[in-house]
Protein backbone atom coordinates (compact mmCIF):
# COMPACT_ATOMS: atom_id res chain seq x y z
CA UNK A 1 0.00 0.00 0.00
CA UNK A 2 1.19 3.44 -0.84
CA UNK A 3 0.67 6.17 1.69
CA UNK A 4 0.05 9.68 0.43
CA UNK A 5 1.24 12.54 2.58
CA UNK A 6 0.58 16.21 2.08
CA UNK A 7 3.31 18.68 2.87
CA UNK A 8 2.87 21.03 5.79
CA UNK A 9 0.80 22.66 7.18
CA UNK A 10 -0.60 19.58 8.83
CA UNK A 11 -3.78 19.56 10.86
CA UNK A 12 -3.26 20.94 14.35
CA UNK A 13 -3.50 18.22 16.93
CA UNK A 14 -6.98 19.05 18.25
CA UNK A 15 -8.55 17.14 15.44
CA UNK A 16 -10.66 14.19 16.34
CA UNK A 17 -13.49 13.46 13.93
CA UNK A 18 -15.96 14.83 16.44
CA UNK A 19 -13.86 17.96 16.94
CA UNK A 20 -13.71 18.77 13.24
CA UNK A 21 -17.37 18.10 12.74
CA UNK A 22 -18.27 20.39 15.66
CA UNK A 23 -16.18 23.17 14.12
CA UNK A 24 -18.00 22.71 10.82
CA UNK A 25 -21.34 22.96 12.58
CA UNK A 26 -20.28 26.17 14.36
CA UNK A 27 -19.21 27.63 11.05
CA UNK A 28 -22.65 26.97 9.57
CA UNK A 29 -24.57 28.83 12.28
CA UNK A 30 -24.47 32.34 10.71
CA UNK A 31 -25.74 31.03 7.37
CA UNK A 32 -28.44 29.08 9.18
CA UNK A 33 -29.65 32.22 10.92
CA UNK A 34 -29.65 34.11 7.62
CA UNK A 35 -31.55 31.27 5.94
CA UNK A 36 -34.13 31.39 8.70
CA UNK A 37 -34.50 35.17 8.31
CA UNK A 38 -34.94 35.13 4.56
CA UNK A 39 -36.94 31.95 4.04
CA UNK A 40 -38.77 31.44 7.34
CA UNK A 41 -39.16 28.53 9.74
CA UNK A 42 -38.87 25.78 7.16
CA UNK A 43 -35.14 25.27 7.56
CA UNK A 44 -35.50 24.44 11.26
CA UNK A 45 -37.91 21.61 10.51
CA UNK A 46 -35.78 20.43 7.61
CA UNK A 47 -32.82 20.37 9.96
CA UNK A 48 -34.67 18.39 12.62
CA UNK A 49 -36.03 15.91 10.08
CA UNK A 50 -32.73 15.38 8.31
CA UNK A 51 -30.74 14.96 11.53
CA UNK A 52 -33.36 12.60 12.92
CA UNK A 53 -33.40 10.40 9.82
CA UNK A 54 -29.63 10.51 9.51
CA UNK A 55 -29.04 9.35 13.08
CA UNK A 56 -31.69 6.66 12.77
CA UNK A 57 -30.15 5.28 9.56
CA UNK A 58 -26.69 5.56 11.07
CA UNK A 59 -27.76 3.52 14.10
CA UNK A 60 -29.49 0.88 11.98
CA UNK A 61 -26.53 0.53 9.64
CA UNK A 62 -23.99 0.34 12.47
CA UNK A 63 -26.09 -2.40 14.03
CA UNK A 64 -26.37 -4.28 10.73
CA UNK A 65 -22.66 -4.03 10.11
CA UNK A 66 -21.94 -5.31 13.59
CA UNK A 67 -20.17 -2.15 14.72
CA UNK A 68 -20.61 -0.57 18.15
CA UNK A 69 -22.88 2.47 18.22
CA UNK A 70 -20.26 4.42 20.18
CA UNK A 71 -18.11 6.23 19.22
CA UNK A 72 -19.43 6.35 15.66
CA UNK A 73 -22.91 7.66 16.33
CA UNK A 74 -21.69 10.66 18.32
CA UNK A 75 -18.87 11.74 16.02
CA UNK A 76 -21.25 14.27 14.42
CA UNK A 77 -20.41 13.10 10.90
CA UNK A 78 -23.99 12.05 10.20
CA UNK A 79 -25.18 15.32 11.72
CA UNK A 80 -22.95 17.37 9.40
CA UNK A 81 -24.21 15.39 6.40
CA UNK A 82 -27.78 16.06 7.48
CA UNK A 83 -27.29 19.77 8.20
CA UNK A 84 -25.61 20.42 4.85
CA UNK A 85 -28.40 18.52 3.11
CA UNK A 86 -31.11 20.48 4.93
CA UNK A 87 -29.48 23.75 3.87
CA UNK A 88 -29.69 22.71 0.21
CA UNK A 89 -33.36 21.68 -0.01
CA UNK A 90 -36.30 24.10 -0.27
CA UNK A 91 -37.66 25.11 3.14
CA UNK A 92 -41.13 23.65 2.56
CA UNK A 93 -39.99 20.38 0.99
CA UNK A 94 -42.15 17.52 2.30
CA UNK A 95 -40.70 15.08 4.84
CA UNK A 96 -40.06 12.29 2.37
CA UNK A 97 -37.42 14.43 0.69
CA UNK A 98 -35.32 14.23 3.84
CA UNK A 99 -36.09 10.56 4.23
CA UNK A 100 -35.01 9.70 0.68
CA UNK A 101 -32.01 12.00 0.82
CA UNK A 102 -30.71 10.55 4.07
CA UNK A 103 -31.41 7.00 2.90
CA UNK A 104 -29.14 7.54 -0.08
CA UNK A 105 -26.60 9.59 1.88
CA UNK A 106 -26.17 7.48 5.00
CA UNK A 107 -27.17 3.98 3.91
CA UNK A 108 -25.94 3.84 0.33
CA UNK A 109 -23.19 6.45 -0.01
CA UNK A 110 -21.70 6.01 3.45
CA UNK A 111 -22.27 2.60 4.97
CA UNK A 112 -22.56 0.38 1.89
CA UNK A 113 -19.18 1.72 0.85
CA UNK A 114 -17.71 0.86 4.25
CA UNK A 115 -18.57 3.75 6.56
CA UNK A 116 -16.91 7.08 7.27
CA UNK A 117 -13.48 7.19 5.68
CA UNK A 118 -14.25 4.64 2.97
CA UNK A 119 -16.98 6.50 1.14
CA UNK A 120 -16.08 7.20 -2.47
CA UNK A 121 -18.75 9.89 -2.82
CA UNK A 122 -19.68 12.79 -0.61
CA UNK A 123 -22.80 11.52 1.22
CA UNK A 124 -24.58 14.88 1.28
CA UNK A 125 -24.24 15.29 -2.47
CA UNK A 126 -25.38 11.73 -3.16
CA UNK A 127 -28.49 12.43 -1.10
CA UNK A 128 -29.05 15.75 -2.81
CA UNK A 129 -28.52 14.37 -6.33
CA UNK A 130 -30.92 11.53 -5.57
CA UNK A 131 -33.73 13.85 -4.50
CA UNK A 132 -33.07 16.31 -7.34
CA UNK A 133 -33.61 13.49 -9.81
CA UNK A 134 -36.39 11.76 -7.92
CA UNK A 135 -38.47 14.80 -6.94
CA UNK A 136 -37.62 17.55 -9.42
CA UNK A 137 -40.79 19.53 -8.78
CA UNK A 138 -40.48 19.62 -4.99
CA UNK A 139 -36.84 20.57 -5.32
CA UNK A 140 -37.57 23.53 -7.53
CA UNK A 141 -40.25 25.10 -5.34
CA UNK A 142 -38.41 27.67 -3.31
CA UNK A 143 -40.14 30.31 -1.26
CA UNK A 144 -39.72 33.91 -2.23
CA UNK A 145 -37.28 35.56 0.18
CA UNK A 146 -38.71 37.66 3.00
CA UNK A 147 -38.66 41.13 1.50
CA UNK A 148 -40.52 39.96 -1.63
CA UNK A 149 -43.01 37.66 -0.08
CA UNK A 150 -46.50 38.79 0.93
CA UNK A 151 -45.72 37.02 4.19
CA UNK A 152 -43.75 33.89 4.87
CA UNK A 153 -45.85 30.98 6.10
CA UNK A 154 -46.13 30.77 9.87
CA UNK A 155 -44.85 28.04 12.14
CA UNK A 156 -47.97 25.88 12.04
CA UNK A 157 -48.48 26.29 8.30
CA UNK A 158 -44.85 25.39 7.64
CA UNK A 159 -45.16 22.26 9.74
CA UNK A 160 -48.34 21.20 7.98
CA UNK A 161 -46.83 21.75 4.56
CA UNK A 162 -43.80 19.63 5.43
CA UNK A 163 -45.84 16.82 6.99
CA UNK A 164 -48.53 16.55 4.33
CA UNK A 165 -46.68 17.71 1.24
CA UNK A 166 -49.59 20.06 0.57
CA UNK A 167 -49.94 23.73 1.30
CA UNK A 168 -52.68 24.78 3.71
CA UNK A 169 -55.69 26.20 1.90
CA UNK A 170 -54.82 29.72 2.97
CA UNK A 171 -51.62 29.69 0.93
CA UNK A 172 -50.85 28.89 -2.64
CA UNK A 173 -47.66 28.27 -4.51
CA UNK A 174 -48.18 30.87 -7.17
CA UNK A 175 -47.96 33.72 -4.70
CA UNK A 176 -45.53 32.12 -2.26
CA UNK A 177 -43.01 30.56 -4.52
CA UNK A 178 -40.63 32.19 -6.83
CA UNK A 179 -38.29 30.76 -9.35
CA UNK A 180 -34.82 30.63 -7.90
CA UNK A 181 -32.52 33.21 -9.48
CA UNK A 182 -30.75 30.46 -11.44
CA UNK A 183 -34.05 29.20 -12.81
CA UNK A 184 -35.20 32.68 -13.74
CA UNK A 185 -31.96 33.34 -15.55
CA UNK A 186 -32.07 30.12 -17.52
CA UNK A 187 -35.71 30.65 -18.45
CA UNK A 188 -35.08 34.24 -19.44
CA UNK A 189 -32.08 33.49 -21.61
CA UNK A 190 -33.98 30.67 -23.29
CA UNK A 191 -36.53 33.14 -24.56
CA UNK A 192 -33.92 35.56 -25.80
CA UNK A 193 -34.26 38.18 -23.14
CA UNK A 194 -31.21 40.15 -22.06
CA UNK A 195 -29.55 39.37 -18.77
CA UNK A 196 -29.89 43.00 -17.70
CA UNK A 197 -33.59 42.81 -18.42
CA UNK A 198 -33.98 39.53 -16.54
CA UNK A 199 -32.10 40.95 -13.62
CA UNK A 200 -34.67 43.72 -13.25
CA UNK A 201 -36.80 41.03 -11.61
CA UNK A 202 -36.87 41.78 -7.86
CA UNK A 203 -35.63 38.26 -6.98
CA UNK A 204 -32.19 39.46 -8.03
CA UNK A 205 -30.27 41.40 -5.43
CA UNK A 206 -27.13 43.45 -5.70
CA UNK A 207 -24.89 40.76 -7.12
CA UNK A 208 -26.67 37.44 -6.78
CA UNK A 209 -30.18 36.45 -5.84
CA UNK A 210 -31.86 38.48 -3.13
CA UNK A 211 -31.51 36.68 0.18
CA UNK A 212 -29.31 34.07 -1.50
CA UNK A 213 -26.40 36.47 -1.69
CA UNK A 214 -26.53 37.09 2.06
CA UNK A 215 -26.68 33.43 2.88
CA UNK A 216 -23.73 32.90 0.56
CA UNK A 217 -21.86 35.67 2.36
CA UNK A 218 -22.38 33.89 5.66
CA UNK A 219 -21.18 30.60 4.19
CA UNK A 220 -18.12 32.52 3.11
CA UNK A 221 -17.68 33.82 6.64
CA UNK A 222 -18.06 30.34 8.10
CA UNK A 223 -15.64 28.99 5.53
CA UNK A 224 -13.03 31.58 6.39
CA UNK A 225 -13.42 30.62 10.05
CA UNK A 226 -12.74 27.00 9.13
CA UNK A 227 -9.63 27.99 7.19
CA UNK A 228 -8.46 30.09 10.14
CA UNK A 229 -9.01 27.12 12.48
CA UNK A 230 -7.20 24.97 9.91
CA UNK A 231 -10.09 22.57 9.67
CA UNK A 232 -9.95 22.96 5.90
CA UNK A 233 -7.15 24.22 3.69
CA UNK A 234 -7.59 27.21 1.41
CA UNK A 235 -6.87 25.26 -1.76
CA UNK A 236 -10.24 23.89 -2.70
CA UNK A 237 -12.38 26.98 -2.00
CA UNK A 238 -9.90 29.25 -3.73
CA UNK A 239 -9.74 26.94 -6.74
CA UNK A 240 -13.53 26.78 -6.98
CA UNK A 241 -14.07 30.53 -6.70
CA UNK A 242 -11.08 31.53 -8.83
CA UNK A 243 -12.02 29.12 -11.62
CA UNK A 244 -15.58 30.36 -11.60
CA UNK A 245 -14.36 33.94 -11.96
CA UNK A 246 -11.69 33.13 -14.55
CA UNK A 247 -14.06 31.17 -16.76
CA UNK A 248 -17.19 33.25 -16.49
CA UNK A 249 -15.60 36.71 -16.68
CA UNK A 250 -14.50 36.55 -20.35
CA UNK A 251 -17.83 35.04 -21.34
CA UNK A 252 -19.64 37.77 -19.47
CA UNK A 253 -17.49 40.51 -21.01
CA UNK A 254 -17.98 39.10 -24.50
CA UNK A 255 -21.67 38.52 -24.20
CA UNK A 256 -23.11 40.37 -21.20
CA UNK A 257 -26.57 39.92 -22.66
CA UNK A 258 -26.61 36.16 -22.58
CA UNK A 259 -24.11 35.26 -19.86
CA UNK A 260 -24.55 35.97 -16.18
CA UNK A 261 -21.74 37.83 -14.41
CA UNK A 262 -19.20 35.94 -12.29
CA UNK A 263 -20.69 37.38 -9.10
CA UNK A 264 -24.10 36.22 -10.22
CA UNK A 265 -22.70 32.72 -10.64
CA UNK A 266 -21.01 32.66 -7.26
CA UNK A 267 -23.80 34.16 -5.24
CA UNK A 268 -26.69 32.09 -6.53
CA UNK A 269 -27.28 28.44 -5.96
CA UNK A 270 -25.03 26.23 -3.90
CA UNK A 271 -21.60 27.17 -5.21
CA UNK A 272 -20.24 28.81 -2.05
CA UNK A 273 -21.48 26.16 0.37
CA UNK A 274 -19.99 23.56 -1.95
CA UNK A 275 -16.67 25.38 -2.18
CA UNK A 276 -16.14 25.60 1.58
CA UNK A 277 -18.14 22.79 3.11
CA UNK A 278 -18.60 20.04 0.54
CA UNK A 279 -15.72 19.95 -1.92
CA UNK A 280 -13.38 20.20 1.08
CA UNK A 281 -14.57 16.84 2.41
CA UNK A 282 -11.27 15.10 3.24
CA UNK A 283 -12.65 11.63 2.48
CA UNK A 284 -14.21 11.99 -0.95
CA UNK A 285 -12.03 14.86 -2.17
CA UNK A 286 -8.35 15.00 -3.03
CA UNK A 287 -5.63 14.90 -0.42
CA UNK A 288 -2.56 16.28 -2.21
CA UNK A 289 -2.31 20.06 -2.36
CA UNK A 290 -2.09 20.27 -6.14
CA UNK A 291 -4.84 17.69 -6.31
CA UNK A 292 -7.07 19.93 -4.23
CA UNK A 293 -6.55 22.78 -6.68
CA UNK A 294 -7.44 20.52 -9.61
CA UNK A 295 -10.42 19.14 -7.73
CA UNK A 296 -11.79 22.60 -6.96
CA UNK A 297 -11.25 23.80 -10.50
CA UNK A 298 -13.06 20.73 -11.82
CA UNK A 299 -16.04 21.29 -9.54
CA UNK A 300 -16.32 24.90 -10.73
CA UNK A 301 -15.99 24.04 -14.44
CA UNK A 302 -18.54 21.26 -14.29
CA UNK A 303 -20.95 23.40 -12.30
CA UNK A 304 -20.78 26.18 -14.88
CA UNK A 305 -21.22 23.69 -17.71
CA UNK A 306 -24.21 22.00 -16.11
CA UNK A 307 -25.84 25.33 -15.28
CA UNK A 308 -25.48 26.32 -18.91
CA UNK A 309 -26.31 23.08 -20.72
CA UNK A 310 -27.79 20.61 -18.24
CA UNK A 311 -31.37 19.56 -17.64
CA UNK A 312 -31.39 20.71 -14.01
CA UNK A 313 -30.88 24.32 -12.96
CA UNK A 314 -28.05 23.93 -10.46
CA UNK A 315 -25.30 21.44 -11.16
CA UNK A 316 -23.21 21.66 -8.00
CA UNK A 317 -24.27 18.25 -6.68
CA UNK A 318 -23.53 16.50 -9.96
CA UNK A 319 -20.26 18.37 -10.37
CA UNK A 320 -19.01 17.30 -6.94
CA UNK A 321 -20.00 13.66 -7.53
CA UNK A 322 -18.25 13.56 -10.90
CA UNK A 323 -15.10 15.01 -9.36
CA UNK A 324 -15.34 12.52 -6.47
CA UNK A 325 -14.93 9.79 -9.06
CA UNK A 326 -11.82 11.47 -10.43
CA UNK A 327 -10.30 12.22 -7.02
CA UNK A 328 -8.28 8.99 -6.66
CA UNK A 329 -6.84 9.47 -10.15
CA UNK A 330 -5.99 13.12 -9.49
CA UNK A 331 -4.32 12.16 -6.21
CA UNK A 332 -2.28 9.54 -7.98
CA UNK A 333 -1.11 11.94 -10.66
CA UNK A 334 -0.26 14.73 -8.22
CA UNK A 335 1.45 12.75 -5.48
CA UNK A 336 4.52 14.77 -4.49
CA UNK A 337 7.82 13.05 -5.15
CA UNK A 338 9.27 11.60 -1.98
CA UNK A 339 12.72 13.03 -1.24
CA UNK A 340 15.42 10.83 -2.72
CA UNK A 341 13.01 8.80 -4.82
CA UNK A 342 12.93 8.97 -8.60
CA UNK A 343 9.55 9.65 -10.17
Amino acid sequence: MQLTLSGPPHFPPINTVGGIMRQVLFALIPALVAHCWFFGWGILFQLALAVGFALAFEAVMLRLRGKPLQPFISDYSAVVTAVLFALCVPPLAPWWISLTGMLFAIVIAKHLYGGLGSNLFNPTMVGLAAVIIAFPIDLSQWLAPRSLSPGLPGLAETLRAILTGQLPASLNWDTLSQATPLDALRTGVAENRMVTEIRANPIFGDFGGRGWEWIANFYLLGGLYLIWRRVISWHVPVAVLATTIIVSTPMWLLGPDVNPSPLQHIFSGALVIAAFFIATDPVSGCSTLRGKLVFGAGVALLTLAIRRFGGYPDGVAFAVLLMNMLAPLIDRLTTPRAYGHPR
Binding site: T100, I133, A134, F135
Partner: peptide, 9 residues
Amino acid sequence: GLLLAVLPP
Protein backbone atom coordinates in the same frame (compact mmCIF):
# COMPACT_ATOMS: atom_id res chain seq x y z
CA GLY B 1 -43.15 5.97 -7.45
CA LEU B 2 -39.55 6.96 -7.02
CA LEU B 3 -38.75 8.56 -10.35
CA LEU B 4 -35.06 7.92 -9.76
CA ALA B 5 -35.59 4.18 -10.08
CA VAL B 6 -36.75 4.21 -13.70
CA LEU B 7 -34.13 6.71 -14.85
CA PRO B 8 -30.59 5.67 -15.81
CA PRO B 9 -29.07 6.38 -12.36
